[in-house]
């Protein structure tokens, strides 16, 4: 219970109105409605320690955002318990709200018609930040995010990338101890994504804030999180190191062999050939026999091998295998 984020058997069901397509069904629904309970989060349990940056992975509709909303106090759960910094989030006590933030990549919290600097003044009063603290924090955030003149332009005149940086500053000006980030880089170009990633890493290092992040961009997760939670159909499938994820979820490795003179002999006897072009062949081999198969490849093509590497499959591929049902879920549970 001492962890900044503590979650036990947390579940959330939504009641959804359901009807067949067509006019007849629409008319029937006027009189009698049919509802179905959808279990968005189905009894998940985890803890996050002080200063950790944890990635929350899962396909659309897996329950990531619903979990984040419950932990930020926006949603009441159907059952289970959670504490964030010792508070029950959905009671939304002021003491709790002043110590957390939830930044949603597709949701703006700034007043569009005025410069962000004026919205920041409102936040200063809401969070009771003293003038000198306010100045120091704003300078620091300006510095990290390179805000400069952006604060003095009306928000509606900012580009998406610029606005996102300002949104970040607005979410952090009260120096929250726990930060929930929901798709913080969605829609941003590669440069802006990289900058935001670097900022989150820096911010975590400087302040020791605890961060739980969802993203569809694996680059975000790889750059920021050593630990990941994988959720699918509302259930937690994996909780552990990012590096171990591949080991648990993908029972194979990739041997990439480049032969001299662009030769492409048959590699079928060593494993499944997944790519082959201009003398460079990628062979998928069972993880447990990777060393043995690699040695066999070297023996077979000793004179021709120019380059050879043994790699874990890309993390996107690993996750995709789990979510597409290719890998039985029972085998990946941590």
């Amino acid at each position: 219970m001492n962890a900044p984020v503590f979650v036990r058997d947390l579940a959330k069901s939504y009641r959804v109105h359901e009807r067949e397509e067509g006019l007849g069904a629409a008319m029937r629904a006027l009189v009698k409605r049919r509802y179905r309970d959808v279990r968005a989060v189905d009894g998940i349990t985890f803890e996050i320690g002080e200063g950790e940056v944890v990635g929350f992975l899962g396909p659309n509709g897996a329950g990531k955002t619903t979990t984040l909303k419950m932990l930020a106090g926006l949603l009441y759960p159907t059952s289970g318990e959670a504490t964030v910094l010792g508070h029950t989030p959905w009671l939304r006590e002021s003491r709790f709200l002043t110590q957390i933030t939830l930044l949603m990549g597709n949701r703006s919290q700034l007043v569009w018609d005025i410069p962000a600097a004026d919205s920041f003044r409102v936040l200063q009063q809401i969070y009771e930040i003293g003038e000198s603290d306010y100045r120091v924090r704003l300078d620091e955030l300006s510095d990290l995010l390179d805000l400069g003149p952006l604060l003095h332009k009306p928000v509606r005149q900012l580009s998406l990338g610029e606005r996102m940086k300002v949104e970040f500053a607005a979410s952090l000006v009260h120096a929250p101890r726990v930060i929930f980030l929901d798709e913080p880089t969605i829609g941003l170009d590669v440069t802006a994504q990289t900058r935001i990633r670097r900022f989150v890493a820096d911010y975590n290092r400087r302040t020791g804030a605890t961060i739980l992040l969802t993203s569809h961009y694996m680059d975000d997760v790889v750059a920021l999180c050593r630990r990941v939670l994988v959720i699918h159909h509302g259930k937690l499938l994996y909780d552990g190191g990012l590096a171990d994820l591949a080991t648990r979820m993908a029972p194979y490795k990739l041997v990439v062999v480049t032969l001299a003179d662009g030769a492409s002999p048959r590699f079928d006897e060593f494993g499944e050939v997944v790519a082959s072009e201009e003398g460079r062949t990628t062979v998928r081999v069972p993880r447990e026999s990777a060393a043995e198969r690699t040695a066999a490849i070297i023996r077979a093509f000793e004179q021709q091998v120019v380059d050879l590497s043994v790699e874990d499959p890309p993390i996107e591929e690993v996750i995709d295998r789990v979510f597409s049902g290719e890998r039985p879920l029972s085998q990946v549970r941590s």
């Binding site: 007043v111 018609d113 005025i114 004026d118 003044r121 200063q124 009063q125 009771e128």
Partner: peptide
């Protein structure tokens, strides 16, 4: 007092926003 300070900041921001739509 806290609420008064908040209202002063909110009104400053809102007056600017409203004044834009003459």
């Amino acid at each position: 007092m806290k609420l008064l300070r908040i209202y002063r900041a909110l009104l400053t921001a809102q007056l600017q926003a409203t004044a834009q739509y003459r």
